[in-house]
Nucleic acid binder design. Sequence first.
DNA 1: GTGAACAGTTCAACTCTTGAACTAGTTATT
DNA 2: AATAACTAGTTCAAGAGTTGAACTGTTCAC
Lengths: 151, 151
Amino acid sequence: MDVGKWQTIFGRYEAASFTVNKRFGSLVKEKLQDVLTIDQQMTLSYIKRFGSCTTTELAEAFCVNKSAITAIVTRLNEKGYIHRDRDEKDRRIVYLRLTEEGEKVFQWADEKVFEVVSPYLKIFSEEEIETFLKLYEKLASVSNEGAGEEK
Amino acid sequence: MDVGKWQTIFGRYEAASFTVNKRFGSLVKEKLQDVLTIDQQMTLSYIKRFGSCTTTELAEAFCVNKSAITAIVTRLNEKGYIHRDRDEKDRRIVYLRLTEEGEKVFQWADEKVFEVVSPYLKIFSEEEIETFLKLYEKLASVSNEGAGEEK
DNA sequence: GTGAACAGTTCAACTCTTGAACTAGTTATT
DNA sequence: AATAACTAGTTCAAGAGTTGAACTGTTCAC
């Protein structure tokens, strides 16, 4: 394939991801009202998935500085959704866990996001969605390689 | 398909888009250095695509309040990348256009974004990328329907 | 035991965002 | 023509997320 063709493909990808991200982002934000921001929801989601995790882990997953995570976690902690537990053996490490309240609000928020997004996924046939996800996951997987170097 | 299956699909979609967006976002940001933020780049890109546009148009496309656009445009204007031209007939309307400098910096930034993203797209076969884009564009298209109501 | 490395936090400065209040211009109504 | 209603855009205060530098504690290696 020549250069021009790749530019066309890039342009199409750019346009599609722009639209999907802005639209979904806006709908999700609206659904979560003043309870959680999108970043707060994603933070709870990540911690929930792994049971507990550290600031450093979150910073790597979110591709941001650790201080950005500290800020988000502090807000979630003030709202009573997250615990900060120091490791007994290595006292530098702080484990982040959901509180009871945090579990509840995460459940609620995840349901809301599902309600917003799933109707749009349901317009696809079972075969289409499988094909799409396989390719999207492939993209996610390669974009994740060589992840150690930056930040 | 039953509910559980849709939840699985939703989870897979959530995970893939999270990874791709965070990774690409981080790489693009790094490439654009202190010249442009991602939102500024997307704003220049949108204006470039349509030749000129208004604050209201941008706000709808980006799914944000008009005042958010005013802020971004003001910064781009201070940097000398954007003109504000009042419509002669309807003097409420302000047309936003790229300056010479704006055209140049957009060209540069678009090239940078292309350099970051295209290597990851190139791992797909021609058939795969076409299938993926068709489905992604379908998702973009349906997510864009019913766009008039909100905000 | 000292110095290097690491985990996490604090801080100032910036960008983006909202929502309310506002200016200025246009359209509709009577 | 005068008033009211609407529209385009801006300003402002407040809040969220981000960076990068400087900092506190803690652990590890020599």
